[in-house]
């Protein structure tokens, strides 16, 4: 009797489930809608959906992954990191895709020490992944020596990310650098020469004209009025300002040149990273 009732209720419940397909707010539909929002670029809206999905079914691991992703893509990576710490008991034990997504959040925040500490303590990421992520962090931290150490931990020659990183690191270590010291020194000798050395000869020429013009005026005024008049000193002060400013500018120009060279490599690394992960 009891058994019969149970079977009857079971069938009833199943038949009702068919109607239940229509519920737009149930788990399946929330997932569908959330995934659509994520795909169509409505990230803030997607966050809401996956938050609810995570609430409806806290054991849905894919929902958590999509939630982290929505946070990152909506530009709220800080919230993403915070929420990741809340929704997982131990971040070191989460599955590989989740670890990668959490790493992406950390990399977006550019907090290299925290990211590297995470990869050190993580227990689910395979070691090639850890090495590659560490290499990425070092490339974007502009420390190519350390990046080389990390990338040499990956022995798989078919791994295109590792191969790409090797080439990038090689160019990073061996490419032509402009010496900031030399640029500063050259500009100390002749105003603008340092800038010409770093490739900005037009800026260098303007600096030379500015400094030279002021020096020329100061010289004339000293001859005209002597040292007890304010006029020559005004030109001297402005000229000295341009002279010193140009030395600073030459050092900076060399640094900017080097930074841009590295930035090009970083862009390349970013493309590879995003194709791989």
């Amino acid at each position: 009797m009891k058994k019969g009732l149970l079977i009857f209720l079971g069938i009833l419940s199943l038949s009702l489930k068919v109607i239940a397909q229509e519920n737009l707010y149930n788990e399946t539909n929330t997932r569908k809608f959330g995934e659509y929002l994520l795909e169509s670029g409505q990230y803030n809206f997607a966050v809401k959906e996956f938050e609810r999905l995570n609430f409806l079914n806290p054991s849905d691991s894919n929902a958590k992954l999509n939630l982290m992703k929505s946070y990152r893509l909506s530009g709220n990576w800080e919230d993403g990191i915070r929420r990741s710490n809340e929704i997982f008991e131990d971040l070191n034990l989460i599955p590989r895709p989740h670890s990668i997504e959490y790493s992406k959040l950390l990399l977006t925040g550019r907090d290299w020490p925290r990211a590297q500490h995470y990869w050190e303590t993580n227990k689910t990421l395979p070691s090639p992944d850890k090495a590659l992520l560490n290499t990425t962090a070092e490339i974007f931290n502009s420390d190519f020596q350390k990046a080389l150490e990390y990338v040499s931990l990956v022995n798989d020659s078919t791994n295109y990310l590792a191969e790409g990183y090797r080439s990038i690191i090689d160019r990073g270590l061996n490419g032509k650098r402009k010496s900031p010291f030399l640029a500063g020194f050259m500009s100390t000798a002749i105003p603008g020469l340092g800038k010409a050395y770093t490739g900005n000869w037009k800026d260098g020429l303007v600096s030379l004209i500015f400094t030279g013009g002021m020096a020329f005026q100061a010289y004339r005024k000293f001859n005209q009025f002597g040292a007890n008049n304010y006029r020559p000193w005004i030109y001297t002060a402005i000229g000295t300002g341009f002279y010193l400013g140009n030395i600073y500018g030459s050092v900076k120009s060399a640094k900017v040149k080097n930074r841009k060279r590295i930035n090009i490599l970083q862009h390349e690394a970013s493309d590879l990273f995003n194709a791989y992960y």
Partner: peptide, 21 residues
Amino acid sequence: IKGGLMTMDRLTRCNGLSPQN
């Protein structure tokens, strides 16, 4: 001091000759 130097350098760079930078 540094800000002042940066500004003097900027004044010379304000020439519109190197927009590619």
